[in-house]
Design a protein around this nucleic acid. Structure first.
Lengths: 134, 134
DNA sequence: ACCTTCAAGACTATTTTAGTCTTTTTATAA
DNA sequence: TTATAAAAAGACTAAAATAGTCTTGAAGGT
């Protein structure tokens, strides 16, 4: 239960790789893919969505590739995970402000809310800067 | 991310329904299914596995059905969830004692370990007795 | 012009989820 | 002892999510 997908793993490894490079250094997707053990074209898709979110910056043509879009210290694990896996929602009831069709006296609801809060906090507290340290 | 499946939801609702009945009262699967809004034959499968684990007791023939296998206070949400969804493992690396192919210097590993511990503790601390109260 | 690199979108295979249906076993009751 | 009532077991199916691949296009560099 609650398993990160391969997509999520590749995403994290790829971003950490970028965070470990010298600031401003542009890395090819082929290079990132090899370093993180991810299929290149799959990782390319992931990084495309990161580029849209500003987590990475992309450059085309000769000498192109990817760099981090912001400082490693400002990118949290939560942001990376949610970018590829969607929001952290342990239960459908927690969608849309948490209105559950099972009524207000559902005792399970607040438990999942707690899980959601805790997990979010843990992932929020970890930055790429920390994860990049060797 | 980290979403409980329908199976998990049905399982929880079904067990709570049983926990709300008078101790010793036998409930038909058709009755539990209706009360919990689950497809009967699907819920039957779920309760079959619960019976094997001793979470519920089953009785065949006329007057048969299901009761809780133990006191509601001794059945935790964690037990119910893990019975249907498998162990709480946010990352593959945490399997088999936590040996990750990416080496010991993987900084992400302990984060997922923390998530695992926290979620497990939260679910462990909630019993069916509490959830059954109206 | 030509080459390099990412962007976008269509496509596919595998696995997981979410069930259904049929047959068998066990128990009760007439 | 036969009928009936229920769960157990197992085969089966449909839909969705995951985990990719492949082709073409667009942007930038030489």
């Amino acid at each position: 239960m609650m398993e990160l997908t391969r997509k999520g793993e590749y995403a994290i490894r790829g971003i950490i790789y970028l965070a470990q490079q010298q600031p401003g250094k542009v890395s090819l997707i082929s290079e990132i893919a090899e370093a993180s053990g991810a299929p290149q074209s799959f990782l390319a898709k992931i990084f495309q969505s990161f580029a849209k979110l500003g987590i990475v910056s992309s450059f085309r043509g000769t000498g192109g590739g990817f760099t981090l879009g912001r400082s490693p210290a400002s990118i949290t694990l939560r942001e990376v995970v949610e970018a590829v896996e969607g929001p952290i929602i342990p239960n459908r009831c927690l969608l849309d402000g948490g209105v559950c069709d099972r009524g207000k006296d559902c005792k399970v609801h607040p438990v999942w809310r707690t899980v959601q809060t805790q997990v979010t906090q843990i992932l929020e507290s970890v930055t790429m800067e920390e994860l990049a340290r060797k």
